[in-house]
Design a protein around this nucleic acid. Structure first.
Lengths: 241, 241
DNA sequence: GATAGAATAGAACAATGTTCGATAACACGC
DNA sequence: GCGTGTTATCGAACATTGTTCTATTCTATC
């Protein structure tokens, strides 16, 4: 993702689709908006071309006029969400570089964590996902202000992006069908999880028991920021603060 | 993943499948081995029940005797790979905690990065994926030796796991169909990627141009370790080294 | 008003996950 | 040895899904 390259094809793709449309705009957006709605409601598994077409009140083939297939649909849907992050962080960049980095990272986290489907599709193809690339650029720019070597900057930026995506995708894990369908509450689901951990053998799993009370009822966001601050502390150290 | 809980169901699942078989062992392993082979060769998309059945020289329904469905098959296949990591790091734990942490993290990275399919399925359901849980435990145990508070330990462990999975999944991104099918070499693909980045506007993408030479021909492993060391440096700082 | 392209729609196709019922292999009590 | 119930296998059948094809409607432009 962070380091995932654009496709090997030519930069421009004028032959197919109206993504390079010149006049009638408007409907690619509605397709993507509909896709995001379905994804938020039912997860990646729920996004079928037919379900999307039904929501849009049209036929299945119409969808294919705007995207080349389901994969591209998911890529573009993911990218459209990241566009929101881009807007929300548009004015970041004036303060302490590390603080700005944290601000952007948290904004990105917030966008991903409530969208379990996002993690797998963020930063997949930076030629299509222009917002992803811009976000990567924006994070990199904050790192640049730390006056590290290009190599260090590259590693640090990738580390931040990798951490954000990994942790968010982790926490926003697509829940089992029973939960997403609503027949099992998230709370009961989590309660069953911790109960299962507590039942583990104490001598074989000392760490699990060491942190189980923290895990129980923990806040994902706190956990995320806690880890992020470790990473940023290391970065600040490298930069000679 | 790191924080992903076990399922909300009952701990034991004796009713279904021979996963709790008492005598004739041997075939769940072969099913999983076959699945991993296909996954390594053709990616997650290539793993169809029919392809697996064909490789095993049997019918499709036989597969369903060992796993409840494709999802569980992927979970178990992922977990079986992590079993290898568990073995490879069995004797880690005697040296400097941070160094041991790095050793385990790198071993985990190595296992994931060459298996693009793995990232999405690692640590999904720790009730089924017993190796994943053990690995999480093992990482946590190293962190425990730093004498942090339970809360700090929890955050640090999750951060390491999140970073490893996020970065590895990122770098091991499932490549486009053209690459996996072999009709386009990985080198050409990457070359096209960097060329596209170089073509970006210099004023709008200063960071990209700042690091493009590093990105070009970079080594994924170096990049991973570079970021990991930032995280570990922050952790060492918190622990009062 | 005619024509070319944009855009839509539904039917049809191929692939896939999954289930069902039947059948074989096997272990064990008599 | 024989019957019986469990373990395991198999192929056919079904429902769903991604995708393509062809025909049709709409719209702008001359």
């Amino acid at each position: 993702m962070a380091t995932a390259p654009p496709p090997g094809e030519a930069p421009a793709q004028p032959p197919r689709g109206p993504r390079t449309r010149t006049r009638a705009s408007h409907s690619l957006e509605s397709v993507l908006a509909g896709a995001v709605e379905i994804l938020d409601e039912s997860g990646a598994q729920g996004l079928t071309i037919r379900a999307l077409a039904a929501r849009l009140g049209g036929g299945v083939a119409s969808v294919y006029w705007y995207v080349s297939g389901r994969d591209e649909l998911l890529d573009l849907a993911a990218d459209s969400v990241l566009g929101g992050v881009l807007e929300a962080t548009a004015d970041v960049g004036g303060g302490d570089p590390i603080d700005d980095l944290r601000t952007i990272a948290v904004a990105m986290f917030d966008a991903i964590v409530d969208r379990p489907w996002l993690g797998a599709y963020v930063l997949r193809d930076t030629a299509i996902q222009t917002h992803s690339l811009q976000l990567y650029e924006r994070i990199g720019e904050q790192v640049m202000r730390l006056d590290l070597t290009p190599r260090q900057s590259f590693h640090a930026t990738s580390a931040v992006v990798g951490y954000v995506i990994g942790t968010a995708a982790d926490m926003g894990q697509e829940p089992p069908q029973a939960v997403v369908s609503g027949e099992l509450s998230k709370e009961h689901y989590m309660a069953g999880a911790t109960a299962q951990w507590r039942a583990l053998d104490r001598t074989r799993f000392p760490y699990i028991h060491h942190i189980i009370d923290e895990f129980d009822g923990h806040d994902d966001r706190d956990q995320f920021v806690g880890g992020l601050d470790l990473l940023l502390a290391g970065l600040r150290l490298q930069a000679g603060h």
